[in-house]
């Protein structure tokens, strides 16, 4: 609990916003299906009614309750994202760390595999592959998205694991006589947890985006309610032309907000694990005035000097004359 609190304290503001946003959707996904007012499949004569007290988000062309569909849809979509995230990240860690640790021919082969998967045009392949599977539930989508979604993460994990592998503590545990798999699991992987977390969040984002897109064009089990299939039905019923905004805006907005939450969270993890990024971007408040990293050290009791602005600071930190600055974090 204390560790969680301190983690929250170190998160940048944007990431906290992302966590809150995602938390709302996860909450909706957990309790939503229990509290839905209607069966999302129930066809009623009340067709295409705008939001009212009885139907908070209106009804569809077949008189189904949009709110109920939305709550069930959020759950299905997040579930899919979670499964794909776990599967694809596990694959990318397996491939990335193995390639880095074994090196040599294995590294060459696994890197080649990564690159092949990276250059395959994903969406057409998804459509073709999903076309072969029987459309029953989300399992086909989850499998296919996972198979196509691990390569980017594997590359990043491999690069990081390579630098960790060359650190002395890995050599030291070999010196102790540890087995290879133990070194991977207990020495290398704990050091790249934040990278794996970032990769996971990214994969979830990709999975949700792709699954919604696929469902929207009908390559999914359209008999179940996900955010994508809601959009598919509303599009096929020409809801836009009919002016039934309550049918397509809520699921669209939900997808957009989930995506935003994930992106915010990801930048937060990035900054947490890469102090240089944090230093170059953030200012500190000292003695009542904001100080940028390249400003002269403030003197208590002295008025603040006019200094570089935020953009100029960022540009300066990449410029050659930053060679003449003091190294950061000097104690």
């Amino acid at each position: 609990m204390k560790a969680l609190a301190s983690l929250w304290g170190r998160l940048p503001g944007t990431a906290r916003a992302g966590v809150v946003l995602l938390g709302l959707f996860v909450l909706a996904a957990i309790i939503g299906p229990q509290v839905i007012p209607y069966d999302p499949n129930a066809v009623t004569p009340l067709t295409l009614k705008p939001p009212s007290a009885a139907h908070l988000l209106g009804t569809t062309q077949t008189g189904q309750d949009v709110l109920s569909q939305l709550l069930v849809g959020i759950r299905l979509t997040l579930e899919l994202g979670l499964y794909v995230g776990v599967l694809a990240t596990a694959l990318s860690v397996l491939v990335g760390v193995t390639a880095a640790f074994l090196g040599g021919v294995w590294d060459d082969f696994l890197s080649l595999l990564c690159n092949v998967f990276l250059v395959i045009p994903a969406l057409p392949l998804l459509i073709v592959m999903l076309g072969y599977f029987p459309q029953k539930g989300q399992l086909p989508s989850i499998l296919v998205l996972s198979i196509l979604g691990w390569a980017w993460g594997a590359r990043v994990v491999r690069a990081q694991a390579l630098t960790i592998r060359n650190r002395d503590f890995v050599a030291a545990s070999r010196e102790t006589g540890e087995r290879g798999w133990r070194i991977i699991l207990f020495e290398i992987i704990p050091n790249i947890v934040s990278l794996i977390a970032a990769s996971f969040v990214n994969t979830v984002l990709y999975a949700i985006g792709a699954s919604v897109a696929l469902a929207f064009i009908g390559v999914a089990d359209v008999s179940s309610w996900s955010l994508g299939t809601i959009l598919y039905w509303s599009q096929s019923a020409n809801s836009l032309q009919l002016g039934a905004w309550w049918w397509f805006v809520p699921p669209g907005l939900a997808v957009a907000l989930i995506g935003t939450g994930l992106v915010l969270l990801n930048t937060g993890i990035d900054e947490l694990s890469n102090p240089r990024l944090r230093d170059a971007r953030s200012s500190t408040k000292i003695a009542g005035s904001r100080i940028w990293p390249t400003d002269p050290t403030p003197v208590l009791g002295m008025p603040k000097l006019t200094t570089r602005g935020r953009l100029a600071t960022l540009v300066h930190s990449f410029s050659r004359s930053s060679l003449l600055d003091a190294p950061g974090g000097e104690f």
Partner: peptide
């Protein structure tokens, strides 16, 4: 090892 800062995990 030489460097106590990198030889401990």
């Amino acid at each position: 090892f030489q460097d106590p800062f990198s030889s401990l995990n």
